[in-house]
Amino acid sequence: MNWIYLGIAVIFEVAVGIAAGKAEGFKNLPWTIATLISGAIATFFLSLALLTFDVGVGYALWTSLAGVGIVIIGALFLAQKLTWKKLLGIAIVIGGVVGLNLAGTA
């Protein structure tokens, strides 16, 4: 169940990143509300995942996977350029996530 909670937390953290980018420094009220609500939900599910993950590992997984997700969503839907350097960075992050998982997370 901890991986499900972490997955939900990552999805909502990706939503935070997208919404915050559209909130225009919290001047756009609907996107600001979406940012805050998504952030609260993401944090809630992260806290559930951290009941079984080590805090450092769980938090690192959450932020890393959400960061990769935001880059991919930006490339697919927001017309952001996906360069070879970004792809290399994604590969390094995924390698780090695998390494943390192999080190024992739960």
Rank of each mutant, 00 (worst) to 15 (best):
L87N: 11
T83Q: 01
L6K: 01
G17T: 08
G99V: 04
A49I: 05
G96H: 06
G67M: 14
G69P: 00
F26A: 13
K85Y: 09
F45Q: 06
Y5T: 03
T105F: 11
S47Q: 14
N28D: 14
L6Q: 02
I70L: 09
I41C: 11
S47W: 03
L36D: 10
L87A: 12
V71R: 03
L61C: 09
S47I: 08
P30C: 08
I73Y: 15
T105I: 14
G96I: 01
V68K: 08
L76H: 04
L102A: 13
Y5C: 02
D54E: 13
A103H: 09
T83A: 09
G67T: 13
L82R: 10
E24M: 11
P30Y: 06
I8G: 09
T105C: 13
W31E: 03
G69W: 02
L82F: 11
G99S: 08
F26V: 10
G67N: 11
A106I: 15
F53P: 01
G17E: 05
L65H: 05
I18H: 00
L88S: 07
L76P: 05
L82W: 05
F45G: 04
I33T: 11
I33C: 09
L87T: 06
V98Y: 02
W84F: 11
G39P: 07
E24W: 00
I4G: 01
L102N: 13
G58T: 06
Q80N: 12
I33V: 15
G17R: 06
L46Q: 03
I41M: 11
G67D: 00
